[in-house]
Design a protein around this nucleic acid. Structure first.
Lengths: 202, 202
DNA sequence: GTCTATATAGCGATAGAC
DNA sequence: GTCTATCGCTATATAGAC
């Protein structure tokens, strides 16, 4: 899909919406506020998005791109175990932002699930992106229950993010990530002889 | 504080707000909708609550009462380990509702933290209620790191609730609770000789 | 493509009769 | 205490000049 409009405006609107939604929730920011933050005149928003919901949909895709970029970065690592630990450490590293606005992805997904049923599948896709990637790593470590482990990892991260933000405690986030780090280590790699083959089965 | 108004109306308003907020989020339900659901005439809401935010504050207190009632029920059990497992199983038992609207407490707290700064401390209290109680149980089992264990337990529950609701998968919630059950068992009780004394020392 | 001006509707909140 | 009527405001969305 090619956009023949003046470059930047659409992207600025999405970025401004992403920022404001992250800070104040999905419902609070008005189109006027988003337009102002993006340095776009209020009425012009509707040239790019027919409805507010359409802007939210674009915002989710924007976040999906960020998630994919993050995971691509992690894929540079050789060791699946190191990849998984670095994923978790992403939340520890941004513990202060997590405390201020919660986990960007988790909050966005859970709010959209409640308030915009039609965006729920798209929001679920954001989480699935992380889940699928983690499952792949655990599978490469030879764990037959890779999906369950991925769920536990991501659930642990998301739960810690909720508690940290509600209780305003960045150390809580960091401590839980440290615990998940140890958990990943203690899992070891099952059947290390054929771990590379395990990727192929099922 | 005694209310000399006709009994029921205030309570009905709070209950209706609780239900609608649980279903559609903190910001979406209008006072008109809440009043209608509570069978109260729209203008009459302001006799009981000066502002919308004041109604939300009452809603949080309503939830706090429910949390305390839940924990009191669990306290009837003799064994702290059984208490903790039954706490977790509360979410498994309501997995279908969790999938539909997320964890009532977790969603409420995390949304209020973002959208109503002045209610954030009150919302944090909701989570602390659960955390303090869990910490007490772990301490009675003789764990010196009881607070950290409580955080892990509640984080695991909240994270699973997010994933289950976003992915629309009740079994995910149930499986994670089962895992937490086993985790509680595997923790055992530290220094079981003096576990009852451990409650006393800090 | 961009902007101003505005239509339309619904919100939270108030006033005042009963 | 309860209700009706309504104020004042701001939201999303549209129309049309440029």
């Amino acid at each position: 899909m090619v956009w023949i409009t003046r470059p930047g405006k659409r992207e600025r609107l999405v970025a401004a919406a992403a920022e404001l939604v992250d800070r104040h929730g999905v419902e609070s920011p008005t189109l006027a506020q988003i337009a102002q933050a993006a340095n776009v005149s209020p009425g012009n928003v509707y040239y790019y998005f027919k409805t507010r919901e359409e802007l939210l949909a674009a915002l989710v895709e924007h976040r999906r791109g960020e998630v994919r970029a993050l995971l691509s970065g992690l894929d540079r690592r050789r060791d699946p175990r190191a990849r998984l630990k670095e994923l978790a450490e992403t939340w520890a590293a941004s513990a202060d932002e997590v405390v201020e606005h919660g986990c960007t992805i988790g909050c966005l997904a859970s709010q959209l699930t409640k308030t915009h049923a039609c965006l729920a599948p798209s929001a679920a896709g954001l989480i699935e992106e992380l889940l699928d990637w983690s499952e792949t790593q655990f599978r490469q470590l030879g764990h037959p229950d890779a999906r369950a482990l991925a769920t536990t990892l991501l659930g642990g991260i998301q739960g810690a993010a909720i508690l940290a933000s509600v209780l305003q405690d960045p150390d809580l986030m960091r401590r839980e990530v440290r615990r998940l780090d140890r958990w990943i280590d203690d899992l070891g790699s099952v059947d290390s002889r054929s771990s590379s083959l395990r990727v192929l089965d099922h």
